[in-house]
């Protein structure tokens, strides 16, 4: 049975939908005889995800649409073969962003969104008009199942009453995007038994490209530490540490992982922590040893915020580490420019 252009378009835009799964079933794609074009599209999807780029493409040819639809499960295999949970997240995030863009192209956005919500198993009720323009209500328990990345979806920023979360249209679309992100994340990695060599080669090539782009990021910062260039959260935790103010376990852990990542030595760390009122060298040494040995990553902004350690309203920093790197680089350039002008 051949699908119409509009059916193919729907499936390409929403590759996690029932319609897309039906088309995949009908085409009975064999991994051993994978068309080159499909593999190329899958590689492009995976690479875009790795680079944090958007993946958004408007097509009208049935052939190209079908290639895109078939490429989605292959891209999931390629991503899974990297055995990198961060890449899994990036891939899911890219598709959730694409979902919002594609939804904008739909003639009946609301109906499409509601249909996809049903397919994703979201429990909802159409909301009665309250003057605030609510579109749907979702039981609180269901709303809380999703771990949100978008700050606008935090429960504190929703209209909540009697165990229900009332969402306006735009917020509901964002909620759907997060549900999609969560569902795709949960579906990764896919089982990898019986993967043919052609795909293994593709995965290897992708891995090399990823390694090259990551090398720069993973280099540990060396040189003198400059706390003036820390993000506000790290600055505030560092100030507490230096002044001997009592810090929670999580704040101690976060500042220690951060300071280790920017090159502070174990002994310097111990000296700083010795100012804490309940300092116990044996315990402190154990924790710091673990952080240094395993090179535990410093927290991202979401974790800092969750722990209530972000002191800045509407903070624009994306990661304390990348912020510090950028600031260091900017200072270096400034100093170079200063030296040249002298």
């Amino acid at each position: 049975m051949h699908s119409s252009i509009s059916e193919l378009q729907f499936a390409q835009r929403f590759p996690f939908s029932r319609e897309a799964k039906n088309i995949l079933r009908e085409n009975n794609l064999s991994l051993d005889e994978l068309p080159e074009e499909v593999l190329a599209r899958a590689e492009a999807m995976a690479l875009n995800a790795a680079k944090g780029k958007d993946y958004y493409i408007e097509l009208r040819s049935s052939e190209l649409l079908l290639q895109e639809i078939l490429a989605f499960p292959i891209a999931k295999i390629l991503v899974s073969m990297q055995k990198d949970s961060m890449l899994n997240d990036k891939f899911a995030f890219m598709l959730s962003k694409s979902f919002l863009k594609y939804l904008d192209l739909e003639k009946n956005r609301k109906d499409t969104a509601l249909e996809l919500a049903r397919q994703l198993g979201i429990e909802f009720e159409i909301a009665a008009d309250s003057g605030e323009g609510f579109f749907v209500s979702i039981p609180l328990q269901n709303f809380l199942k999703i771990h949100f990345r978008r700050m606008s979806l935090k429960l504190v920023n929703q209209h909540v009453a009697l165990g229900k979360v009332f969402l306006q249209e735009k917020r509901f679309f964002d909620f759907l995007a997060e549900t999609i992100l969560s569902a795709i994340s949960a579906s990764l990695p896919v089982p990898l038994e019986g993967i043919p060599n052609s795909l293994k080669n593709s995965a290897r090539q992708l891995q090399q490209m990823l390694l090259a782009s990551r090398k720069e990021f993973e280099t540990k910062i060396s040189g003198k530490i400059n706390p003036n260039l820390f993000s506000d959260c790290m600055k505030s935790m560092y100030a507490d540490l230096v002044s001997g103010k009592h810090m929670t376990h999580i704040a101690r852990f976060y500042i220690a992982t951060f300071l280790n990542s920017i090159g502070m030595t174990k002994e310097q760390l111990l000296e700083l922590f010795s100012k804490q009122g309940n300092y116990n060298e044996r315990i402190a040494r154990y924790h710091i040893d673990r952080i240094v040995k395993q090179n535990l990553s410093p927290p991202g902004c979401a974790k800092v915020r969750e722990a209530g350690l972000c002191p800045t309203e509407n903070c624009q920093v994306r990661h304390p580490m990348s912020f510090y790197r950028r600031e260091l680089k900017a200072l270096e350039l400034q100093e170079k420019a200063g030296r040249h002008s002298r």
Binding site: S152, L155, N157, R305
Partner: peptide, 22 residues
């Protein structure tokens, strides 16, 4: 409830991360 949901409930009660514009 997973820990993320517990954080959402606590943030709601304490008003943590409330975005007035939002």
């Amino acid at each position: 409830l997973p820990q993320t949901a517990r954080i959402e409930l606590l943030d709601y009660l304490t008003g943590n991360s409330l975005d007035l514009e939002s």
